[in-house]
Design a protein around this nucleic acid. Structure first.
Lengths: 345, 345
DNA sequence: TTACCAACAACAAACGTTTGCGCAATTGGT
DNA sequence: ACCAATTGCGCAAACGTTTGTTGTTGGTAA
């Protein structure tokens, strides 16, 4: 059950493969009569071009490598969806390369991209320190690179990221505006740039408001389960904080149940806010106000940038430094009963 | 910045490309001295084989097409992880082809698989009725197909699925064993085979236990938000049910907040159980007992089956009918305060 | 008539690999 | 010192396309 090729069609019609190739792409050199005949036969035989052969000949594939730290249920599904929708319309296909949070695997994935001659690489880095080998491997590929979400500074590649500092800052400011006096925060892995930035925004918002920043109210959790632990010990303090900032969906889903279990009324006794992709906060109990970090949008923009780079070819050259696009978060208030109202009421 | 090829190496050494090719794969025909010299140079030039060319020559790619209805945060991330881990170890790469729940796109995805000459297709169907065109496209490819999760009966392909009927049956039986007298269920899209099977298990468990099956206590929801609505109207009834079965993670995350909001004590006044991938039930408040439907395991098994089929080539021929593997669910009890204990206590 | 130009299609090379075959040089056994 | 077997490597074809060049018609204009 061999696939039908251009050769097969040519043979059956007693003509040359090149004629078939041209006919199928409506090259004017081929007469209309023959052209339609060829197309008819191609249809009958269910001819489909062999992309491998096309790639080889044209020295350019229509495959894009997607390297992400890990396939989790948070954030990445919507990013992938955004990327996929754009790339598909551009005629490109995605090859999935999760690094399982391993540096070694990340490098391997870059090599796989190279071996498959991808037209471009979309990249979110794993949480570990990155080596020179890493980056040189990336350079050698000669394909455009677009980073997103977890990026490394000072790399000459385009990037789409969310405003981490600003999001945390706005979130905490919002908590304070609703009357919170002592705010605790639960953060992700400390090594990550996004953690550091969000922590900085958190701190800044507190000190800017004349409140006291206390390191004892800052927690780090590498998973939802750790977040649950953190929230537990947080609420066990006396007094517990009256405002809580959760850095991500992964954090909020782990910690919210703990907070609820503590018995404190939310948001009357303890306000909770998080940064989220925009789905969970609607589903959780109680509903939580959040800063919308739109993964779909990140994916969409990253993919669009990628297509642009491929088309224009403007990603190469010594002087290309890359451009970082920052997405502004949007505050979505779901807990309408705010403490300031309580105070006034 | 052209990639270095075998030709380049051959030229620099003044030898034939075939010699280089053989040397790089340790063919004994090539002398040890030359062999190591070639390898050294290949290393220096950062040679990486061009998979496209290899595929073309060998008439077999190491790409696997993954077609899923949609990239959601539920179930599929862990399935993908399972698939990916196995395939990677087997030296295969995944090309992601979400169908966005569109039949047309699903067919297109099959064609993309064909064009890219994939070594195999891993397939979860979209929710819509499937056409003959669909299936014939699949047949023509000449590559093994492994279905998972959302499958179609009577197709001559292997499949890995979860025991839908059984899971629902066991779940509901468990509710009843803890003392529930009137059990409601929230289900997904009615068109889906898994919905029908789980509904059937639900019904059967109720009637088998001598309780009354009431269609008014059965709800269908296409999303978490619809599930929230359903749970709302469910709890608004008087009396509300004292046991609730949620068909999936997507359903439970939408409905649980609604149930909690109703004010009923869980599980004392109203027990909740669901079928889940195994993550959410630990995170939600309150923790919910569930039947573990392990997406990771599904992915792993499906991928292993795929590798097997590729290796043995035993997927073709008129008489091959495919084999359906059923995964047994595991009951995980998280709400330790059970009603029967209350009754006794 | 000659020359010219479309129009159409065949030819052949090329992309980077792999691989069957062949050929020379070396080895070993008599 | 001769044949046979072995070693080590080159040659060339092939995978399915694309594409620049060449060739063959038939027709039109000079």
């Amino acid at each position: 059950m061999k696939r039908t090729t251009i050769k097969d069609i040519a043979q059956q019609l007693g003509i040359n493969p090149s004629t078939v190739s041209r006919a199928l792409k409506d090259h004017p050199d081929i007469g209309l009569a023959l052209r339609t005949e060829i197309k008819k036969l191609a249809d009958q035989l269910h001819y489909r071009p062999n992309h491998m052969a096309v790639y080889l000949r044209q020295q350019s594939s229509r495959l894009i490598g997607l390297i992400i730290p890990e396939v989790t249920m948070f954030f990445y599904p919507s990013v992938i969806k955004g990327i996929q929708n754009v790339l598909h319309d551009g005629g490109y296909n995605l090859i999935m390369l999760p690094s399982n949070e391993s540096l070694e695997r990340e490098i391997e994935n870059i090599h796989i991209c190279s071996e498959n001659d991808v037209a471009g690489i979309m990249l979110a880095f794993s949480r570990y320190r990155h080596t020179a080998e890493h980056l040189s491997a990336l350079e050698e590929i000669g394909a455009p690179v677009v980073m997103f979400d977890k990026i490394i500074d000072d790399l000459p590649y385009d990037a789409i990221v969310l405003e981490d500092f600003q999001s945390a800052y706005v979130a905490v400011k919002h908590l304070i505006s609703t009357g919170c006096k002592r705010i605790a925060g639960i953060f992700g892995n400390q090594e990550l740039r996004i953690t550091q930035l969000r922590l900085e925004g958190f701190r800044q918002a507190i000190t800017d408001s004349g409140l006291i920043y206390n390191e004892a109210d800052v927690y780090f959790a590498d998973s939802s389960f750790e977040a649950e632990q953190s929230a537990g010990s947080m609420m066990a303090k006396s007094p517990p904080p009256d405002g809580i900032f959760a850095m991500t969906d992964e954090i909020i889903i782990g910690s919210l149940p703990s907070i609820v279990r503590s018995g404190k009324k939310i948001p009357e006794e303890c306000s909770v806010i998080c940064i989220s992709d925009g789905f969970l906060p609607y589903c959780l109990y109680p509903k939580v106000t959040f800063l919308h970090h739109d993964g779909y949008e990140v994916g969409k923009l990253a993919a669009q940038r990628m297509l642009q780079l491929i088309e224009t070819g403007q990603f190469t050259g010594e002087n290309y430094k890359g451009e970082v696009t920052m997405l502004k978060p949007l505050l979505i208030e779901l807990d309408t009963t705010r403490k300031v109202e309580n105070v006034e009421g």
